[in-house]
Computed example of a mutant assay.
Amino acid sequence: MPKGTIQNRLLPAITFIILIILWELVTKVADLPVWLLPAPSDIVKSLVGRNDMFMHTWVTFYETILGFLLAILIGVPLAVLVNSSPLISNTIYPLILITQSIPKVAFAPILLIWVGYGIVPKIIIAFLVAFFPVVIDTATGLNSPSPELINLARQLNASKIQIYTKIRFPSALPHFFSGLKVAITLSVIGAVIGEFVGSDVGLGYIVIMATSQFKTPLSFAAMLLLALMGIVLFFVIALIEKLSIPWYGRGE
């Protein structure tokens, strides 16, 4: 492994460890109450004996993945429609912007009225949050091939399907994966927003419940698990990207 690569990986880890040590020292030296700012050791202790945390983590993970997959299943075909016709693009884009501009926290209570409690509103919120980057980045990628290349393909009697499968889709992959990496982290946020509004299970519920009872270490622990979930999912998408388009970024 190149020396520069090792340094690039060690530096963030060392910085993180130093910050954790400083956090621990500040809370102990300043004698801050646990309910105000818990030390990292207090956060770890809050997880000891809580066998239900795996279940809460799994529920949030499940909601996140379903919302993310739904964003792909709907977002990619919609991006193709947007790219295929200026008329469709001018019609759909304003609607997409409107849905993105609506605060999801404000929309979540309405979903509870429409579909009730349970997992469905959380999945919908995760989908709505992740939907925008998938559509926009995929549409941008589909539009990235040069007009000269598209005209050349047409002069060679390539069909519209062939232009998409041979030119537009391969060119769109880097943009597509960039959108996915943003969308997967936003899906975690969307699932938690849904749990904040109405839920009795999930890491978002743990944060609300623990905060209301001044169990700040447990609240921090739930947020730590959410952060780890987002990081792991991000790197899973990055790994899939590397395996799918190994040629991309080699010159960087």
Rank of each mutant, 00 (worst) to 15 (best):
I125K: 11
K181E: 00
M209R: 15
P94G: 07
P147D: 02
S212T: 10
W35T: 07
V80P: 03
K166D: 03
L95Y: 12
A108M: 05
Q162N: 05
F132S: 07
R154M: 12
L173Y: 04
S199T: 04
I184G: 05
S85Q: 15
S244G: 07
L11T: 11
V105W: 10
M229A: 09
I6V: 11
I72F: 06
L19F: 13
S178V: 05
A210Q: 05
F196C: 01
P103D: 02
L87K: 15
I102E: 00
V182E: 00
A227R: 02
I136S: 08
P109N: 09
I92E: 02
L32P: 03
F220G: 00
I193C: 06
M209A: 09
G190I: 05
I18S: 04
I98F: 15
N90L: 10
H175I: 02
P170S: 04
P147L: 06
A227D: 00
E252F: 10
P94K: 14
L228D: 00
V192N: 06
A227G: 15
F132V: 09
F196S: 01
L32K: 08
I92K: 12
P133K: 12
G202L: 14
D42Y: 10
F214D: 00
I21K: 11
E24Q: 15
T140G: 09
Q7T: 08
K122Q: 14
G198M: 08
A126F: 07
A71F: 08
L203R: 05
G251N: 14
A79W: 13
W35S: 04
I125R: 13
L142I: 10
N143G: 06
S159K: 14
Q155R: 10
D42L: 04
Y205W: 15
V135G: 08
D52G: 01
N8H: 04
F196A: 08
I17T: 14
P12G: 01
N90Q: 13
S219F: 08
